[in-house]
Design a protein around this nucleic acid. Structure first.
Lengths: 242, 242
DNA sequence: CAGTGGTCTAGACCACACT
DNA sequence: GTGTGGTCTAGACCACTGC
């Protein structure tokens, strides 16, 4: 048993993935052309092609005809936040102006048991916690707590976060070489308690959409836990099924 | 301008899609082998292959090595409900016993304006409305209203629905030849009103996850509007991002 | 065994972007 | 024009299923 048969293109995919992981090509860079990679790995172009097809499918890489294949990045993608599924209700597709971000808190602490478990840390390991409020048109829309492994995000401070424009995940790429590759979200409906209500400028008891996100880097290593509370009076969480 | 260049495999994909749509092969059937299709369309196997690859990606068709390629179906898929994203919290992957279904109401009426708009009907066209409660282990978990175009689902009655076991979408396939192919969901957090509370055995004001689903058949034709209210005390809506 | 989908190759040619 | 990804072909062979 255990035939362990692995197609050649899967092996090539793994090799390319390893290079991505090792940072041989940075986010936004082009990777070598299909013919170059074919030569490097001593396989045909078609085999490399199939490997890259899968990487593109996984959103690790972006193909652009005539130009090349690029390492995917959370920066410079004209969509502001790749993982944010909250959209304005109004049928209008007008780009709701960029979110205004207010950081409430940013501190290091020993990981609570549940956070440690989800991030694959030992209980008590150092974590960085960020609490912030996102607003659109000066109206609060999201309150979220973010937990990051302290060891990986060593130099990260409130100042860095506060001065930064652009997606947080883009900053993670640039400053810490951490690329968020996929995420799993768990949604529930909850009632606002007094603290949440104050920060979101609503009444206690107001219904909120609770969105817990665990985001992963390469190799299914969890790297961020995010607990968000979304106001859904004039916005909604959008999802496509197939 | 308007180069309108369309790869051959896309054209083949369209042709196969047309046959699926026309019911040349029924859900669960195998479609002709790649070589047969290649002969029929006078192209190489590789071209048919790429067409089928995309159809499989869209979940319209399922490949099974050594056996053939099958028309996807909502029946006989060992997952009970392909579009239901509500899972039990408990880490255990144990299959929560099948949902118990209680139909509260099933009637025909003239489509309200908003329902008509979403289903692409004229306001006042006949629609079938079904209201039901889904329970797990005798505990209510979901209250949902379902709207269907009256013309398409002509013979559908409460009796048919009540006596049927298995996914509703499977019944639609078998009885009306309607295959739900994809869906879009809109989520919000809301407070239970008196009516919802009574049906779900909770207190008014209890937070509920509102899930509005518009399900489509082939050609992006909307065929079902579903407004669900999910209890998320011990269950959650699960979503994967990439 | 025959029949199916899955892999791999080698080469020709097309569409697109830049220079 | 040159180089990139994208399409298409033809044929050989592999892996899985069921007779």
């Amino acid at each position: 048993m255990a035939p362990a048969f692995s197609p050649l293109y899967q092996q090539i995919k793994s090799l390319i993935l390893r290079s991505l992981q090792a940072g041989e090509w940075k986010p936004g860079d082009t990777i070598p052309s299909e013919l170059e990679l074919a030569a490097r790995f001593k396989v045909s172009q078609g085999t490399v092609r199939k490997a890259i097809d899968e990487l593109a499918n996984d959103n690790l890489v972006v193909r652009r005809q005539g130009k090349g294949t690029f390492v995917a990045t959370h920066a410079e993608q004209h969509i502001q936040y790749r993982f944010l599924r909250l959209l304005p209700d109004s049928g209008s597709l007008k780009t709701q102006g960029p979110a205004e971000r207010r950081i409430i808190e940013c501190r290091r602490l020993r990981a609570p048991a549940d956070v440690a478990r989800q991030l694959g840390l030992r209980s008590g390991d150092s974590v960085l916690q960020v609490r912030r409020v996102l607003s659109f048109s000066s109206t609060p829309a999201i309150l979220e707590d973010i937990w990051l492994p302290g060891a990986t995000f060593k130099g990260l401070t409130l100042e860095t976060l506060a001065h930064d424009k652009g997606p947080m995940y883009a900053l993670f790429e640039a400053q810490f070489g951490v690329r968020m590759v996929r995420a799993v979200e768990t949604l529930k409906a909850v009632s606002a308690d007094a603290e949440m209500a104050a920060l979101l400028a609503i009444q206690p008891g107001h219904p909120l959409l609770s969105v817990e996100r665990l985001a992963y880097t390469y190799n299914d290593v969890p790297m961020e836990l995010r607990r968000g509370l979304y106001l859904t009076e004039s916005r909604h969480y959008h999802n496509e099924l197939s």
